[in-house]
Structure formats: structure tokens, C-alpha cells
Computed example of a mutant assay.
Amino acid sequence: MQTKVKKGLIVIDSERCKGCKYCILTCPKGCIELSSEFNASGFFPARFSNPENCIGCAMCAVVCPEIAIEVFVED
């Protein structure tokens, strides 16, 4: 019996993000990093990277103090 791995999609509102790195530190698969470009408020926001590794656990959204992250899971 083969277990199907969930695939996740993370959407980050870069204008709400203040670059606190909580999501980066929490992600068990290393799917988030800081952008190299400023947002309108002068912060380096988080960005979704390594999408092939995302399992849709939503821990990033749970720890985000700015409520800037949405997670979608493909079953």
C-alpha cells in the first residue's frame, strides 16, 4: 500500500509581511525564505520557495503574527 503525500501551496501577502522569520523557522520542509526585495513598508518579506517540498502542514500560517499566509492543500 502506497501513501500519497499531500502537496501544499503557500500564498504570502508580501505587503502584510514584516519579515519576522517565524514562518521560516517553523517550516519543517524549508519551503519559505526571505525575499531579496523590499515591500512597500521597507521589510524583506517571506516568499514561498521549494514548492515541491511543501506538505501543506500550515504551521507557517499558524505562527504568522500578521496573518499574511494562506495555505492550500491538494488531496
Rank of each mutant, 00 (worst) to 15 (best):
residue 32 I to T: 08
residue 47 R to F: 13
residue 66 E to N: 14
residue 32 I to A: 10
residue 47 R to Q: 15
residue 2 Q to G: 11
residue 36 S to G: 13
residue 12 I to A: 11
residue 55 I to F: 03
residue 3 T to M: 08
residue 3 T to V: 14
residue 33 E to R: 04
residue 70 E to H: 07
residue 69 I to S: 07
residue 32 I to L: 14
residue 36 S to D: 13
residue 66 E to G: 06
residue 57 C to L: 03
residue 13 D to N: 13
residue 62 V to I: 06
residue 55 I to R: 11
residue 48 F to K: 13
residue 1 M to G: 14
residue 10 I to F: 04
residue 10 I to V: 15
residue 74 E to P: 00
residue 74 E to M: 02
residue 49 S to L: 05
residue 62 V to K: 09
residue 68 A to M: 02
residue 35 S to W: 00
residue 66 E to F: 05
residue 57 C to H: 03
residue 14 S to C: 07
residue 39 N to Y: 01
residue 67 I to E: 13
residue 65 P to Y: 02
residue 57 C to Q: 04
residue 53 N to L: 12
residue 16 R to V: 11
residue 69 I to C: 07
residue 30 G to S: 05
residue 22 Y to H: 08
residue 5 V to H: 08
residue 5 V to D: 13
residue 29 K to L: 09
residue 56 G to M: 00
residue 51 P to M: 10
residue 75 D to I: 00
residue 49 S to I: 14
residue 6 K to Y: 02
residue 50 N to W: 01
residue 10 I to R: 05
residue 58 A to H: 03
residue 72 F to S: 13
residue 50 N to Q: 08
residue 27 C to V: 04
residue 34 L to V: 06
residue 18 K to W: 01
residue 24 I to V: 09
residue 61 A to S: 15
residue 3 T to L: 12
residue 29 K to T: 15
residue 68 A to P: 02
residue 69 I to R: 04
residue 37 E to S: 14
residue 59 M to W: 09
residue 43 F to G: 14
residue 30 G to E: 02
residue 59 M to Q: 13
residue 8 G to D: 01
residue 37 E to F: 06
residue 12 I to Q: 10
residue 36 S to V: 10
residue 55 I to A: 11
residue 37 E to I: 07
residue 52 E to T: 11
residue 65 P to N: 10
residue 54 C to F: 02
residue 53 N to C: 09
residue 25 L to M: 08
residue 56 G to R: 00
residue 16 R to D: 10
residue 39 N to W: 01
residue 70 E to M: 08
residue 22 Y to E: 09
residue 29 K to S: 13
residue 48 F to E: 15
residue 32 I to N: 08
residue 46 A to R: 05
residue 49 S to N: 11
residue 45 P to N: 05
residue 22 Y to V: 02
residue 72 F to N: 09
residue 2 Q to C: 08
residue 56 G to V: 00
residue 48 F to Y: 15
residue 61 A to I: 03
residue 4 K to F: 10
residue 43 F to V: 04
residue 5 V to P: 10
residue 61 A to W: 01
residue 70 E to C: 07
residue 54 C to N: 09
residue 25 L to S: 12
residue 43 F to T: 07
residue 19 G to W: 00
residue 74 E to V: 03
residue 72 F to K: 11
residue 71 V to H: 04
residue 23 C to N: 05
residue 60 C to E: 11
residue 69 I to P: 04
residue 42 G to Q: 01
residue 9 L to Q: 08
residue 47 R to I: 15
residue 6 K to Q: 09
